[in-house]
Design a protein around this nucleic acid. Structure first.
Lengths: 228, 228
DNA sequence: TAAATAATACGATGCTCATCGAAGTATGGA
DNA sequence: TCCATACTTCGATGAGCATCGTATTATTTA
């Protein structure tokens, strides 16, 4: 008798190409309709509907109905985090085209991970915040120091408001491209929203790609000393 | 076009019940013959042969031939670590019998992870060594401090010899039962071997279970202040 | 009220793949 | 030289399951 955790139960859902594509598409943290996801995964709506039902049953995604549309999203950031971990230990896709290769480079530089920033830029920012003494990693989460509290409030992130949300305040999220941690959770989301507000970053439709604006480049340099 | 790591390629190999059972059996870090693995996974030798070929092709396991026997082992500790990570984020198996439940408890307490110690005991020891200032975690590996060098040499672990091995000197290995890190790599293995040498621990045939002997209990208490 | 759109339900199809019996190869020992 | 053992190869079988055509339900718009 071999006793081991139930590997199959989770991975079986991820193994199937179409479902993996759907989940990868949902990693942008946004809501998507069933038809959109069908298109993104290159399958017919009926097939997508079948997979979406299965993913919802297993609590990987949630659904909100508005009129005749059904909007799907990842269930929570724990699911997103789990997907990132699996991506981190999975092989990179074989690059078949120049287009795909440049797309991959952009994603490795900066992308959304559910509802916060990921990629080279995010990992650098996280490191710089650690070095500056604003945050400290405690195993799988980050703690905000005294000087960090001042820093974040000063930057315009409402820590008190964030801490009231019914979700992890901050977690150390494994980055699939950098294979180390970046800042996630409510705090990661708070920073992300603030960057957007300040026009330091821009997100793209139907892609996880994040573009750093010129204003962002000088902002990140002034604030953290980060050259992009 | 969706660009992301190829989740399916990895998880497909792990999802299949028989292959998962084979890999779980190999997590003890020992060599096993094809027949042994077939028996452990409750399949016929032909079927095992088919799966073993597939796993070898994908560099998850390696094979050494001695006479008419073929001995299989996990390819390296990176594979072992990857398996532990997936186990860590997978739901625990449904417990079907008392026997299975007590087996699971024993594994959670102390077991082998590839070629070093894992489970509650290992996580505690790692923490205590960190608190004592012998090691420091640096992201995904552990560094040995000056006082640590003295400590390990004094305990009978040959650090210079270990550092010459063609493998990671020490890595932070994610523990599936405790969901935090324990000490792995060459140093983890060195300690494991030394515990065995001192009769502090005993391994069981065909199981990842590790038993702490009475001598071990007093040893761990004297050395680290760990009550078992 | 009728047509268009979003999505699901159901059933048929077909593909992938694990499994195992039968047969074959390699090695060791009597 | 013959048999036993360890393992692999090949081929047949069958189960699971993704896919999609067709039909249906729900909602919006004209």
């Amino acid at each position: 008798m071999i006793v081991h955790p139930n590997i199959s139960a989770l991975t079986a859902l991820l193994t199937e190409r179409s479902r993996a594509a759907i989940l990868a598409a949902l990693m942008d943290g946004k809501f998507h309709t069933a038809s959109e996801l069908a298109y993104m995964a290159s399958i017919k709506p009926q097939t997508a509907s079948f997979h979406l039902a299965k993913l919802e049953e297993n609590n990987l995604i949630i659904c909100e109905k508005h009129g005749r549309f059904r909007y799907f999203r990842l269930a929570n950031d724990e699911v997103a985090n789990t997907l990132e971990i699996i991506m981190a230990i999975s092989p990179l896709p074989e690059v078949r085209s120049l287009n795909q290769s440049s797309q991959l480079k952009k994603l490795e530089s900066a992308r959304t991970c559910y509802d916060h920033l990921a990629g080279r830029v995010s990992v650098s920012l996280t490191k710089l915040m650690e070095e500056a003494g604003y945050i400290e990693r405690d195993n799988k989460k980050f703690l905000v120091t005294k000087s960090g509290e001042l820093f974040f409030e000063d930057f315009g992130v409402d820590l008190v408001g964030l801490s009231k949300k019914r979700r992890a305040f901050s977690n150390a999220c494994l980055d699939w491209s950098e294979r180390t941690y970046h800042l996630g959770g409510a705090l990661g989301n708070g920073l992300f929203e603030r960057y957007l507000e300040l026009d330091w970053i821009e997100t793209k439709e139907n892609s996880r790609e994040v573009v750093i604006t010129d204003r962002g480049k000088s902002g990140f340099k002034d604030l953290f000393g980060l050259e992009i």
